[in-house]
Structure formats: structure tokens, C-alpha cells
Amino acid sequence: MSAIYILIGFSLLAALGFLGAFLWSVRNGQYEDSYTPSIRILFDDEPLENSESKDTNSNKINNPKQ
């Protein structure tokens, strides 16, 4: 029966882990916008080198007034 002590201990630890994850997600603001991330996840990441080369280009564009 002493195995039960250990099992209860582990189950509580696991549950505490989930509670911690929940509290962290609230703190992180995940419950403030539940819609945008669902769209954001569908955008493809672009190849890295491509965006870097564009970066130098975009440096030139820094004053939209003209």
C-alpha cells in the first residue's frame, strides 16, 4: 500500500505542473486575445536568407513622408 503515497505525490506534482502552466498562460496574456493567434498560426514562415536580403532594402525606406 505504501506505493500509494508515492503515486499520490506524483499525481499532485503533475497536477501542480498543469496549474502552473495555466497560471503562466494567463499571466502571459493568452486569454486576452483568443482570436488573432488562430489566424497568425496559418501564415507561412519565409526562408531566412530572403528576408535578410530584403532587410537591407527596407533600411532605405524609413521616411514615408517623402
Binding site: T36, I39, S51, D55, S58, N62
Partner: peptide, 14 residues
């Protein structure tokens, strides 16, 4: 990507 001075921008669609 339009302006390197912008560090990050996040949209809340709703």
C-alpha cells in the same frame, strides 16, 4: 520589414 526601427508589432484582431 518596412522600417528597421520597428522592433515588433502585435495585432489584436477583435
Amino acid at each position: 520589414r518596412l522600417h528597421s526601427g520597428i522592433h515588433q508589432s502585435t495585432v489584436n484582431f477583435v
